[in-house]
Simulated assay, not measured.
Amino acid sequence: MQYIYIGPVPTEESCSQVGNPTYPEDSTRECQVYSRMLQRLFPAPADVPVAYVTREQRHEFGVYREVAIRFDETNGAAVDFAHQVEREAPSEWDPIAHYELAWFERKRAYAEAVREKRLRPEEVPSHFGQANPPELAPGSSFSDLLSAYPL
């Protein structure tokens, strides 16, 4: 298997910096949201051996995380798909990714409020009890997402 590194976030967006005390959590979240965005924009065909993965690279300042596409270099369709994603990867977050980033921040704020006893667990909206942001049903719009799962 081979890897093409796409980046930790879209190219025109800022990302968490290695060395920042919250880097491990922030970079994991950013890569997760970016990977989900790429999956939405470039869904891998079922019969093509590719996958979006987060890779960790070590260097003198610590561990650096980045989204990559893993592909079977002996499969022409997989090679073509991986290079297409590399060429066409978006330079900015899409609206759903912005929602997901805000959702993670809100989830963190709710968890902190519960820990500090400013809120009771039952006061936290149920969709913040999940590990990941809510998924859009096929054919749904961004406004449907906000209506169903307000921030």
Score class of each variant (00 low, 15 high):
Glu66Val: 14
Thr74Arg: 15
Ala78Phe: 08
Ser35Asp: 00
Pro49Ile: 00
Ala109Tyr: 07
Asn75Cys: 15
Ser16Met: 03
Pro90Trp: 10
His127Glu: 07
Lys107Tyr: 07
Ala44Trp: 14
Tyr110Met: 03
Trp103Phe: 11
Pro95Phe: 08
Val48Leu: 05
Ser14Arg: 15
Arg106Trp: 01
Ala44Asn: 12
Glu12Gln: 08
Gln84Trp: 14
Arg118Gln: 11
Glu116Leu: 10
Arg65Glu: 00
Tyr3Leu: 11
Arg115Ile: 04
Arg108Val: 01
Asp80Trp: 02
Glu25Met: 11
Thr11Val: 13
Val18Gln: 13
Ser91Phe: 13
Gln39Phe: 04
Ala89Thr: 10
Gln130Asn: 02
Arg120Phe: 09
Tyr64Gly: 00
Glu56Tyr: 05
Arg36Phe: 01
Thr28Trp: 05
His59Cys: 05
Arg29Trp: 01
Asp94Lys: 15
Pro95Cys: 12
Glu122Gly: 06
Arg65Phe: 10
Ala44Cys: 10
Met37Trp: 09
Glu88His: 10
Gln2Val: 00
Thr11Trp: 12
Pro10Phe: 07
His59Gln: 01
Pro21Asp: 14
Ile69Leu: 13
Pro43Gly: 08
Arg120Val: 08
Pro43Glu: 09
Val48Gly: 07
Pro8Trp: 02
Ser27Asp: 06
Ala51Leu: 05
Arg65Thr: 14
Tyr99Pro: 06
Glu56Phe: 01
Arg87Lys: 09
Ala102Gly: 09
Pro24Leu: 05
Pro10His: 14
Arg58Val: 10
Phe104Glu: 04
Glu100Leu: 04
Asn20Trp: 12
Pro49Asn: 03
Glu116Ile: 03
Phe81Ile: 05
Glu73Leu: 04
Gly62Phe: 11
Ala113His: 07
Pro21Ile: 06
Gly76Lys: 09
Tyr99Met: 09
Ala111Asn: 06
